[in-house]
Amino acid sequence: MIKKIFSILLVYASVFFGAESISSKHSLSILETSSTRSRGMMGTSFLIGNDSSAVFTSSASLMGVLRDSINLNYTITSSMKDEYIFNASYAHIGASYAFGIGFASEINKIYSYDSVYGIKKNDIYSGLYLINIGASYAINESSFIGANIKSVVNNSEKHNNFGLFFDLSYMQSIFTPSFKLGVGIKNFGFYDNVFAKIDTDITASLAYIKSDNSFSISAQYTISVPSVSHKVSLGIEAMIIDFNKLGLFKEKKAWYDDLPESILDAPSAVQKRLAQKLPSGILARAGIGNKGASLGLSIYVKLFRLDYAVIFDNFKKDNISHDIGMSFMF
């Protein structure tokens, strides 16, 4: 299965590597929607999604989410009075499947002026809106596959343009459950001339996630075609204060923990997931790549998480943004 996927990706990429005469094109920013946690690791969450925001990045990693969850995210840019970026998502996790839905918006205020007198006229709001629906399926305990369908509306004054895009993703545990390998194709589909400059992104990722979720490291490589641009990034997340080890929060035992094994059937995948201890504590993150660097911090308190990230896009001091996010599990 993995060999077949890599072969398809290799052929797909090789077609566009030879097209040097093609002018540079860049992906629509809203199609790169992610979470504060992911942005704090420079976008390296392809394999390590642990809340509903994974639907924006790689729906296959929804199977790694421990509970149903809701994620909210707001980005503060250098032009915060004229630019509003927000996203929200929800995910439901089953025994061998998961699905999620996400909404994202990016609204810009444009100042218009009278061409004759040069005086300010009414403000114009130009918006991008994304609805993303994704699902994943567990082929077995170590292999997951996912797919997304994304609709985008580009609204500018009286004009509305619509685009439809698809994602495919696959992840596989290797050696042990803690090591994961994944590949994916993002943003291919049907669109009009307004969306004709959208790149298709081909991503490969390798990650290590400690079983108690107290540490993870992820490397990610993306090639965008037909522009043939490259993105390489490395992200690290580590628990710096563990509330569970300090004994601040005590977890109840699962109902089957005290029963003799002889009278107990093996617990289901859902029961195992619900019995798994949730991380609680303060986590720090860092990420670096050829497109910039980032730092992040989170507070986990059982079913609630509060996130913060600062992103230095392209390493420019005048291109810094801040993300604030929160996640609820239930």
Rank of each mutant, 00 (worst) to 15 (best):
residue 3 K to R: 09
residue 6 F to W: 00
residue 9 L to A: 09
residue 10 L to T: 15
residue 12 Y to C: 05
residue 15 V to H: 02
residue 18 G to C: 14
residue 21 S to D: 14
residue 28 L to M: 10
residue 35 S to R: 03
residue 42 M to N: 14
residue 45 S to V: 07
residue 46 F to G: 07
residue 48 I to A: 10
residue 52 S to W: 06
residue 59 S to N: 08
residue 65 V to M: 06
residue 80 M to E: 14
residue 80 M to K: 08
residue 81 K to S: 12
residue 83 E to Q: 11
residue 84 Y to L: 13
residue 87 N to R: 02
residue 97 Y to S: 15
residue 105 S to C: 00
residue 109 K to G: 08
residue 118 G to P: 05
residue 123 D to F: 01
residue 131 I to P: 13
residue 134 G to K: 05
residue 135 A to L: 08
residue 137 Y to F: 12
residue 137 Y to H: 08
residue 141 E to S: 12
residue 144 F to K: 09
residue 150 K to G: 11
residue 154 N to W: 12
residue 158 K to V: 15
residue 164 L to P: 06
residue 166 F to T: 15
residue 170 Y to R: 02
residue 181 L to N: 09
residue 184 G to L: 02
residue 188 F to P: 09
residue 188 F to I: 10
residue 217 I to Y: 01
residue 219 A to Q: 05
residue 220 Q to R: 03
residue 224 S to R: 13
residue 229 S to K: 10
residue 231 K to Y: 11
residue 233 S to M: 01
residue 239 M to I: 06
residue 246 L to C: 10
residue 248 L to F: 15
residue 253 K to V: 10
residue 259 L to E: 05
residue 262 S to L: 13
residue 265 D to Q: 07
residue 266 A to L: 09
residue 267 P to D: 01
residue 269 A to G: 09
residue 276 Q to Y: 02
residue 283 L to I: 05
residue 284 A to W: 05
residue 284 A to S: 11
residue 286 A to E: 01
residue 295 L to T: 08
residue 303 L to K: 14
residue 306 L to H: 03
residue 307 D to S: 04
residue 307 D to T: 04
residue 308 Y to Q: 04
residue 311 I to P: 07
residue 312 F to K: 02
residue 317 K to Y: 14
residue 319 N to R: 07
residue 320 I to H: 03
residue 321 S to R: 13
residue 323 D to G: 04
residue 325 G to K: 02
residue 327 S to P: 14
